[in-house]
Simulated assay, not measured.
Amino acid sequence: MPATLEVESTLTDRYQTTVPETVRRALRLSKRDKIHYTIRPGGEVVLTRADASDEDDPVLGAFLGFLARDVASHPERLQAMDAGLVQRLQALTGGIEVDLDALLSPDDE
């Protein structure tokens, strides 16, 4: 059975606290992540990482996490895009308007 770790944090005058590093690591929390609290009848509070909301794309989130880890561990791999590629991308996408809040058609889903 794994050992139980116990840590403390202090509430500020505004009832805020810093989540201790050991807890952040155990829950794999990053900045802006949400925390879920379960309050049990005896007064015990269980802190867990909140599940991604329905609006979050788990595949995109995993991919962006992969990119972030790769950039952090291998910054030497980053390369600037040359002006020719930028111009080509602008020529291909220039003038295209996208409504990110619009629903997809049934054919596009």
Rank of each mutant, 00 (worst) to 15 (best):
residue 1 M to Q: 03
residue 2 P to E: 12
residue 3 A to C: 06
residue 5 L to H: 10
residue 5 L to A: 14
residue 7 V to T: 14
residue 7 V to N: 10
residue 7 V to H: 08
residue 8 E to S: 12
residue 8 E to A: 13
residue 9 S to H: 05
residue 9 S to K: 03
residue 10 T to G: 00
residue 11 L to R: 07
residue 12 T to S: 15
residue 12 T to Q: 00
residue 12 T to A: 04
residue 13 D to F: 03
residue 15 Y to V: 02
residue 15 Y to I: 01
residue 17 T to L: 14
residue 19 V to D: 00
residue 20 P to D: 11
residue 20 P to C: 05
residue 20 P to A: 09
residue 20 P to T: 14
residue 21 E to G: 10
residue 21 E to I: 07
residue 22 T to H: 02
residue 22 T to N: 06
residue 23 V to H: 01
residue 23 V to N: 01
residue 24 R to T: 08
residue 24 R to K: 14
residue 24 R to W: 02
residue 24 R to I: 08
residue 25 R to M: 05
residue 25 R to T: 06
residue 25 R to K: 12
residue 26 A to S: 12
residue 27 L to V: 06
residue 27 L to I: 08
residue 29 L to I: 09
residue 29 L to P: 00
residue 30 S to D: 14
residue 31 K to P: 01
residue 32 R to L: 07
residue 32 R to M: 07
residue 34 K to C: 03
residue 36 H to N: 06
residue 37 Y to W: 11
residue 37 Y to A: 10
residue 38 T to Y: 08
residue 38 T to Q: 12
residue 40 R to F: 11
residue 40 R to A: 15
residue 40 R to Y: 15
residue 41 P to A: 10
residue 41 P to H: 04
residue 42 G to F: 00
residue 42 G to R: 06
residue 42 G to C: 04
residue 43 G to D: 09
residue 44 E to W: 06
residue 45 V to L: 13
residue 47 L to V: 15
residue 47 L to C: 08
residue 47 L to Q: 05
residue 47 L to S: 03
residue 48 T to N: 13
residue 48 T to L: 07
residue 49 R to W: 01
residue 51 D to H: 07
residue 52 A to T: 05
residue 52 A to V: 05
residue 53 S to I: 02
residue 53 S to K: 09
residue 54 D to W: 04
residue 54 D to Y: 03
residue 54 D to S: 15
residue 54 D to F: 04
residue 55 E to G: 06
residue 56 D to N: 10
residue 56 D to Y: 02
residue 58 P to E: 01
residue 60 L to S: 11
residue 60 L to R: 12
residue 60 L to E: 15
residue 62 A to F: 07
residue 62 A to I: 06
residue 62 A to Y: 10
residue 64 L to W: 08
residue 65 G to V: 01
residue 66 F to C: 08
residue 67 L to E: 10
residue 68 A to N: 08
residue 69 R to W: 04
residue 70 D to S: 10
residue 70 D to I: 01
residue 70 D to L: 07
residue 71 V to T: 09
residue 71 V to K: 13
residue 72 A to S: 15
residue 73 S to H: 13
residue 74 H to M: 13
residue 75 P to G: 01
residue 76 E to P: 00
residue 76 E to W: 03
residue 77 R to N: 14
residue 79 Q to N: 09
residue 79 Q to A: 14
residue 79 Q to M: 11
residue 81 M to T: 03
residue 82 D to C: 08
residue 82 D to K: 09
residue 83 A to L: 06
residue 83 A to I: 04
residue 83 A to W: 04
residue 83 A to T: 12
residue 86 V to C: 00
residue 86 V to Y: 03
residue 86 V to M: 10
residue 87 Q to M: 06
residue 88 R to A: 15
residue 88 R to I: 04
residue 89 L to K: 06
residue 89 L to S: 05
residue 90 Q to E: 14
residue 90 Q to K: 12
residue 90 Q to P: 01
residue 90 Q to V: 14
residue 90 Q to R: 15
residue 91 A to C: 07
residue 92 L to A: 15
residue 92 L to D: 15
residue 93 T to P: 00
residue 93 T to A: 14
residue 93 T to V: 06
residue 94 G to Y: 07
residue 94 G to T: 07
residue 94 G to N: 12
residue 96 I to W: 02
residue 97 E to S: 11
residue 100 L to E: 07
residue 101 D to A: 09
residue 101 D to W: 02
residue 102 A to S: 15
residue 102 A to V: 02
residue 103 L to W: 08
residue 103 L to N: 13
residue 104 L to Q: 13
residue 104 L to D: 11
residue 104 L to W: 12
residue 104 L to G: 02
residue 105 S to Y: 08
residue 106 P to G: 10
residue 107 D to C: 10
residue 107 D to R: 12
residue 108 D to R: 11
residue 109 E to L: 13
